[in-house]
Structure formats: C-alpha cells, structure tokens
Design a protein around this nucleic acid. Structure first.
Length: 667
DNA sequence: ACACCCACAGAGGATACAAC
DNA sequence: GTTGTATCCTCTGTGGGTGT
C-alpha cells in the first residue's frame, strides 16, 4: 500500500524500499520480520523495526516534521531542573528506557522517551482488572524524546517536542516527589484531608494546572502509606474526629455541653499543622511563633505551654508539643501522631535561637546548658481592640491598665499621659482585659535580653523565635544626648507620643533582668514584631519604675509600618459542639466566655504545671522559657489576695500547692 | 467512605544482543 | 568498538477489589 508513493516498493514492516516488487517479496520471505516489530506508528498500522525508521516514516509518509531543539547546561543538576520545569509546562514526562551509557567521546548518554511511548506489556497473573482509563502506554511510538549527553563541563540536550498518538494529559502524570513530600508533611501534622484537598485543588487562576491540582483522597492514602504515616492519626475526616471523641471520652457528666474553640488569626500563615490532637481529642492551635496557645472549654482543659519541638528528616519535619494533662499535673509530649509520651527520660532544651529540642544524654544537656547564657524574658500582653492598648508587665505585680494608655478612635494621636501605681489586681469585669486574654496569634511574646555586657550602653533585644527588626543598639536615655535619642526615636520628657496610622500598633513594656544596666522602656511594635522601636525609656531601675507618680516621658512621632493594613482579628469559631450522650452532634452557639475568669484559671493551671516539675534541670531550663510566666503567676498570686478566691474545682491543684510542697503537688 | 490488601504498571538500572 | 534496543530485575507508586 505504500508502493505508489515513490514508485518504489516499501516494506510496511520496516520501511525499507525496493526497486522491484520481487525484491520486496524476497525481503519478506527472508524471515527478517519473523520477530514481531514492536515499533508501531501512532497514526497508522505501519510498523517499523526501530524508532529511527519510524521517525522517517512520520516525516516522509505523514508529512510531519518533528520539531527538534537543543539546550545546553553547565551541570547535570541544571539540566534536571530544566527537565522538571519543561515537563511541567508541557504536561508530559520523559523517562529512561534503559540505563545511561558512556560514549567514546567521554559523554554519558542518556535517552529519555515520552512516558506514553511503547507497548503495554501485561505482567503478573492477570488477577486484576486493567486500569479504568487504560494504560499509559499507547501501544505505538511517540517520537518525543531527549538525547542527553552529560560531560564534565557541559550538558548537551537534543530533544524532540512533537508528541503523536496521545493527548498531553496531566492526569496521566505521577505526583511530583516534592509535592508528595509537602503533602506528607501536612498529613504528618494532622492537617485534615479536606483542608489539603481544598488548598491544593484550588490553585490560583493564573497558574497552570499540575498533577497535584488533581489530587484525590486516594492519592492522600497512597502518600500516607508510602511515608509510613500512622493511618490511625491521619485526620481524614471530621466524622472520624467526632467518632473518636465519643469513643474516648468517658461520660462523666451526661448532657454536658462541650465546646471546642478554634482560634483563627487571619494574618497567620501557619497553614500546615495548626491543629493537633491531644489526649482528650480537643483541638488546639499553634501560634505561628511556635508558642502554643490552647484553652479548651470544659472540664478537661489542656494547657500547652511550651514551644513546638521539631524533628526533621530528609523528607519532612514533625512537630511535637509539650502539654500538661487535664489536671495540669503531668507533662507529656504530644508526638506527631498525636500520641502522648511521657517526658521522663528526656530533657527539654532551649537553644540560643529559641528553638526547642529534646536531649537524652546528660552530656548533651551540659553542652546545651553551657551554651545558654541568655537572660530574662519579657511577657507582653496585648489588647485586641485597636482603640485600647493594655500593658502588662510581668515583673512582680506591675500592670498598666487601659486607663493609663489610651488610644483615641480613628487616627488621633496616642497619649501616654500619666502612670499611676500599677494595679496589683486584675479587675474581674474589665471588658478590655477580658478581650485581652482571648487567645490570639501572639498573646504571649517572649523577648530575651541577650548579652548585656558591662559598661556598654546598649541593650540588645532578641525575640525568642525571630529577631526583632529594629535598631538593635538602643542607648538608654541617661547615657545619650538628646540628639542621639532623637535619632534613635527614644522619647523625651513631657512630650506627646503620636502614633500615626497604625491600627496594628502595639505597646509593650520591657523590663530587663536584674542588674545595674537594666532599665525599663516602652517598645512600640507591630503585631508580628517585624518593626519594633523603643519609644520611651521609663527608668533605669525597678524602683524608679515603681514610683506611683512617675510620668511617662513621651515625645517624638513614631511611625510604625503598617505593612499590609490588614486588621489583625481573632475569629472565634465553634468547630464542634455536641451533647455527649446524644447520637447526633448538635451545633450550639454559646455565649462568649468570661475571659477574665478564664485568664485566672489558665494562670493557675500554668502555675501548677510549673510547680509540678521536680527535676532541677528541667525546672531550670523550663524556667528560662517561661520565667515571664512566673512573673505572671506571682502577680496572680498577689492578686488573689484581693479578689474573690476561685473555686477549687476550677483550680484543682491550688489547694494542694498551698498545703505542701508545690513541686510534688500534682504528681 | 473507610481500611485495608495486593496486583501490577511504570521507572530505572544492569546487562545482553544485534546492527552497523 | 560503538550504538540502539531488548530483556530482566528491583523498587515505587498507583489503583482495583473487598469487607466493614
């Protein structure tokens, strides 16, 4: 059937041409094609002995010019990166049919063919049905390929981009290894299936759809299997969560309504694994800086008080968290699979940069201890409302109330008018305060004062997780001239502090560790502490700061960057509310909790947790991270003297702590 | 829909073989 | 000897099947 084309007689098996029909017949009779020809034309029934002949067939008989290009790279890595990108763009994949081979010119030749090229060759025992959409192999030859010569200094790529016999179907491709690792990471962090699928299957409009954008639940299960993630701890559905809660929770109080609050900060970019499961099945949320906030309603609260512990391997990292049990009495590590492990046998270490890790050997602990000379910690309490900024220092019982620092509505200047004696009590019904203790993105911020060498007029502020982006060397007022202070944005006496256009404006008071060089300053910072400026020093000593008639020295316009103008908000969302003894879950909105009471309860819990550590080393290291917490607790203990006592049920360890050795009170 | 099991397609490497 | 291709083997990823 091909003979008329060129007045020659061409073998439709191998493509060879003969001048006479007789020669063609002899050719066929020679048995040369007894072995089945495996290269089949993608457009007709023509078969050829090899791909080269088939390429000629495509060009000569079908008139298809195979588009050929060249590319050059310095290294093999560059080539592989390009190949990945090329495959992603062209929705195709090029695979090796056989191993690379060294050529006589020194280059290593690898030939990549279109992954859809070739014949489907069944293997196995035919016990399984074929794939619904059929094999990737098209039982024909697709001419697209890459010839790659890898030399010492150059990589030469000659490639054909013309695909024949199949569509460029992205769903035929396999998941990228990187994508799989990312997804595995999310799964290990207990990100629910629904969330992963929603995120990945909703690409931005301008982006090309990739294989990963067609992710299915089946893919997720495959990844769970491949990465050896414990399926029991994969959050594959909310149904399972509910079911698990019902099974695991003893029915202590029938018909008691339970509620789990999920706090979502819109500015948070922590999308991977912001929920973990603790032993009673409640959901908690990591703060983005690694601190953990967790206040669960109900009778089985879990207080997570330590930063997340990270364990990383080549493929993905896993996070752990330290939690107390429901009574605040025992420490556990929540591993990546949501299981509780006792802390015994491990030491929690805090590295200089604020990272946390577990050490098992005493030498490791000693080394870590020697490397840690960081000093005090500051705890900042922020107000949530943009018209009130509450300052709480955690040293002893000092506390600035909202009366002392007020910001008018709109963009009016902020006046730091005067400071009276800091209240030593927490006013029960102060709504501002209540809101202030609603867990938000960073309700507690630790700032270490690091390296304060003698005779140096500098204070270096270092945040535990992320270094504060501000002038690191800030002279104290008494050591600097007015000009210098002005340049450093340190305020002068009696002047008015204006904060322009800073809805994200936060004011904190920093108290530095004991020592003659220590002082008190007000730090203005944005919510994420990306911008931080000392706007007023208050006094060099704690005593001076304690003076009741001390007036804040304010001056200097301070403009804080409002980077994205996104108001930081806390969304309070009821994610799962149901009646324990009922079959079906019932969503019930409850009233906003009384956060002042909640605050006290939490603080008592934290105190109990702190007190229950009876290991000196643990206590020491632990205290480094939560020494500010200790200040809070001291303040709380003083405030308890002037406020009505909390009920015992709310503070289960309080009484025991008063009675005996607090270190063992909760064991 | 989940929780498995497991067949097997497909990729890649080593090697053999054949054509040139 | 060089090069293209086939075959075999191993490993990984995919997906069909089935009981719950």
């Amino acid at each position: 059937k091909h003979m008329e084309k060129t007045n020659e007689f061409m073998c439709d098996q191998c493509g060879r041409t003969f001048q006479k029909k007789y020669n063609l017949i002899k050719h066929l009779e020679s048995g040369i094609h007894d072995v089945s020809e495996t290269v089949k034309c993608a457009l007709c029934e023509f078969r050829a002995q090899n791909r080269k002949i088939m390429g000629e067939h495509y060009q000569q008989f079908h008139g298809i010019s195979l588009k050929e290009s060249n590319a050059y790279f310095k290294t093999a890595d560059e080539f592989y990166l390009w190949k990945n990108e090329f495959e992603s763009q062209t929705k195709s994949r090029f695979v090796k049919m056989s191993s690379s081979r060294k050529r006589k010119n020194g280059f290593i030749r690898s030939t990549y063919f279109c992954h859809r090229d070739g014949n489907f060759i069944p293997k196995g025992r035919n016990l399984r049905h074929l794939k619904v959409k059929g094999s990737n192999k098209i039982n024909a030859h697709c001419p697209a390929k890459m010839d790659v010569d890898i030399g010492e200094r150059i990589v030469i790529v000659s490639y054909i981009t013309t695909h024949l016999g199949h569509e460029l179907d992205v769903t035929r491709m396999s998941l990228d290894r990187t994508d799989r690792a990312v997804i595995a990471n999310k799964l290990a962090h207990r990100v629910p299936f629904e969330q992963i699928l929603y995120e990945i299957n909703s690409p931005s409009k301008d982006s090309e759809l990739k294989r990963v954008n067609y992710l299915t639940r089946k893919d997720l299960w495959n990844i769970v299997d491949t990465f050896k993630i414990n399926p029991k701890n994969v959050v594959y559905s909310k149904t399972r969560l509910r079911r698990k809660k019902k099974i695991e929770k003893p029915k202590k109080e029938p018909k008691r309504k339970r509620m789990c609050y999920k706090y979502t900060n819109q500015k948070s970019d922590n999308t991977d694994g912001n929920e973990i499961m603790v032993n009673n099945g409640e959901e908690v949320k990591y703060a983005t800086d690694g601190q953990v906030i967790a206040i669960n309603q109900g009778d089985e609260e879990n207080i997570i008080i330590c930063p997340v512990l990270k364990e990383e391997n080549e493929e993905y990292s896993q996070e752990y968290a330290l939690v107390s049990d429901e009574t605040g009495g025992t420490y556990y590590i929540v591993n990546a699979e949501g299981e509780l492990e006792s802390i015994s046998g491990h030491q929690v270490m805090y590295t200089e940069d604020g990272e946390v890790k577990l050490c098992e050997t005493s030498s490791e602990i000693r080394n870590e201890e020697l490397s840690q000379q960081t000093q005090s910690v500051l705890l900042v309490q922020e107000s949530m409302e943009d018209n009130v900024h509450e300052l709480v220092t955690l040293n002893e019982s000092y506390c600035l109330t909202s009366d002392q620092v007020k910001k008018e509505h709109g963009r009016s200047p902020v006046k730091l008018s005067k400071t009276t004696t800091m209240n030593k009590t927490f006013e029960p019904d102060n709504s501002d305060r209540n809101i202030a203790f609603v867990p938000k993105q960073k309700p507690i911020v630790h700032i270490n004062v690091n390296e304060l060498p003698e005779n140096e007029q500098t204070i270096r502020l270092i945040k535990t997780e992320k270094e504060i982006d501000c002038d690191l060397d800030i002279p104290l007022k008494e050591n600097s001239s007015n000009e210098e202070l002005k340049n450093q944005q340190v305020t002068g006496a009696g002047e008015e502090l204006e904060v322009e256009n800073s809805p994200e404006y936060e004011v904190t008071i920093a108290n530095y560790e004991e020592g003659e060089e220590n002082g008190y300053v007000i730090v203005a910072a944005d919510e994420d502490f990306n911008q931080c400026t000392v706007i007023s020093d208050i006094g060099p000593t704690e005593d001076e700061f304690d003076q009741s008639d001390y007036t804040l020295k304010t001056s200097e316009n301070v403009t804080l960057k409002d980077e994205d103008s996104v108001q930081s908000t806390v969304k309070e969302e009821v994610v799962d509310t149901y009646v324990m003894d009922e079959e079906e879950s019932t969503v019930v909105l409850e009233e906003e909790p009384q956060w002042n009471e909640k605050r006290k309860e939490v603080l008592h819990k934290l105190l109990n947790v702190h007190n229950m550590i009876n290991n000196e080393k643990q206590l020491k290291f632990f205290s480094k991270n939560i020494s500010s917490l200790e200040h809070v607790l001291k303040a709380l203990s003083k405030s308890d003297e002037t406020v009505p006592q909390l009920s015992e049920s709310n503070i289960p360890c309080e009484k025991r702590q008063e009675e005996g050795n607090p270190k063992n009170s909760c064991r």
